[in-house]
Design a protein around this nucleic acid. Structure first.
Lengths: 338, 338
DNA sequence: TTGAAAGCGCTAACAT
DNA sequence: ATGTTAGCGCTTTCAA
């Protein structure tokens, strides 16, 4: 701590030192009606004393916590870490502290966290929640909740255009001459998985999509998927995400299958792995960071406009995805070449 | 929201519904002196009403915020993400919400965040802070601050035994017959860098350590370091961290240098990259997750025992590191083989 | 074992 | 433009 004597200064300390009433200090600090002179002098005193209004006290009277909450399934997953960074950065601009909870991919922990955080925040950001639609609706207030990378009817959300991105990837492969494309799905029943399916359903005419067995959306999952994949006769593969793609790459290299000469590989997410794998991974980029920032903005809007009493119509924001082309995809006529 | 009518129930609502005074409800919820009968009935009513004590109100009277803060330089860096996950998990056990702030590797943002969070938390965890020792001491209260992966005299901390880990790596290489080991340092002046230097200074006799130019502690930094490295005549290289090692691997492969046959490579941190790079990276594992959890525990201890008035002696915890041996290191007598 | 009363630090009417 | 008053939801003496 700095040289200050003891406890943190209160609004009364500032008031006394500035020779005004606490109410005036309050007005001077927030944007109340005060003469420019007093405002300046009060703020000066406040600064000198190192005065910071107590969030607790303010929250108690205003009914706003002055903080928001963010729930993610796994902070160590690059995708969620990016979202969290976006949230943190945008929240800092608004001088809004963020409670972050890692829910360990557990729906139950998620719902617990929502219940306990609801009370101490002005709003919640739920990133790719694992809980079911009904559970979420039961526990989340539509007026103060924004989903990220997930849609639930009745709740506001910000999500990447995953279906569109999937289509882009297929078009890219189609243009390269691929006609038989394998798809390695992740876990069943996730929103992101459903979106990919929607994209696959709109494959360009002439493109056959072969579904492999689902695997864990991890590097290990990719390792597992490689061998079965080679029996499908596909000339290209679309992986559930970059991690799975990286696992594929590793196992394919071990099997002596050359990428992209023998097989083209496309990932999903454009995480750090995509740029650092060998060969560099062609992948569908989702703007997670922007999604996080956008979610904060949307929440701020909801919470600000919210008290208009009427049940607010949920807002659904879609962020464009884009295909990042690297070295893991090539035209089919390069097959068999050295 | 659930079916509740309107605002969140207060202690008065519970008191009324249970036919007791608010004071009794308070005692029943916390561990006060209440008859078992009343306690049970009050808790029952509270549960039925979905009552959650307001943190703000409680904090106002008790002087404790009932929350802690965590500052990290970059949430998307695997190392810090792991720490954050450890913190989040341990804090959940204590039912302690965590304010997380990504400070974008900026000392100024860090110090701002400390100042603004100090007031609304019971304690702060500073992970690898970028600010200088004096700045940190000026702004951080020793009684309520724990550093993670950094030491500053006068402040409590939890850190991995980086120097020891470096020594382990050198011993491993020495045992494999390497006598000339290159070291690729990261940025100047970081605590972690200093620790590695300390370990390097105790290299086994007979081992020559060649310092390369420092690079950004990233994949790109590793790419840059590879070519100069090859001019040093070293048979093995110790990289600042796994990312740099991965960059080295990529560039070495492009240059036709085989790892580990022609050159052994050792990383640092044992992040996800280490296991998924090709070849798998021998690396010094630091238990970041446990460090995060341990930091929460230490903070809890400080804050609990703290009010013993006397300036508490800073506690410095050291966590053991361990060498994870994978495929990127081999005996020197394998050099030149196919 | 329980209740009554005071007050934590702040903001928001309401006066002036 | 500023001061006075009341009270947010809770815990904590102090009495009973």
């Amino acid at each position: 701590m700095t040289t200050t004597g003891g406890a943190a200064p209160t609004i009364h300390d500032v008031a006394r030192a500035a020779g005004v009433s606490p109410a005036t200090v309050s007005r001077a600090m927030s944007g109340g009606t005060v003469s420019p002179t007093t405002r300046a002098s009060v703020q000066d005193v406040a600064r000198r004393l190192g005065y910071r209004p107590s969030r607790a006290a303010r929250g108690l009277v205003t009914g706003r916590a002055g903080a928001i909450g963010l729930l993610v399934p796994d902070l160590t997953h690059a995708f969620f870490a990016d979202v969290a960074k976006g949230v943190s950065g945008r929240a800092r601009l608004a001088e809004l502290p963020v409670f972050v909870t890692d829910t360990d991919e557990e729906a139950a922990l998620e719902l617990d966290a929502v219940r306990s955080l609801r009370r101490s925040t002005d709003g919640l950001l739920l990133c790719s929640p694992r809980a079911g639609d009904d559970e979420l609706r039961a526990v989340a207030d539509p007026a103060t909740t924004v989903l990220v990378h997930r849609r639930v009817p009745g709740l506001s959300s910000v999500a990447g255009d995953v279906a569109g991105g999937t289509r882009q990837a297929l078009e890219h492969l189609h243009a390269l001459g691929h006609r038989r494309v394998a798809y390695v799905p992740g876990r069943y029943g996730s929103w992101a998985g459903t979106q990919r399916d929607a994209g696959l359903a709109e494959a360009p005419p002439g493109v056959d999509v072969v579904r492999c067995s689902p695997v864990d959306p991890t590097f290990t999952g990719g390792l597992q998927a490689a061998d079965p994949l080679l029996t499908t006769g596909a000339s290209a593969v679309l992986a559930y995400n970059d991690l799975v793609a990286a696992g594929l790459l590793a196992r394919l290299a071990a099997r002596g299958v050359r990428v992209p000469e023998d097989l083209s590989v496309v990932g999903f997410d454009d995480g750090a792995v995509a740029a650092t794998s060998r060969p560099g991974l062609t992948t569908v980029a989702i703007p997670q960071r922007r999604a996080g920032a956008a979610a904060v903005e949307l929440l701020l809007r909801l919470v600000t406009e919210g008290p208009a009493d009427a049940p607010p119509a949920p807002v659904e924001l879609t962020l464009a995805t884009s295909l990042v082309v690297r070295e893991s995809t090539a035209p089919t006529d390069s097959r068999g070449r050295t």
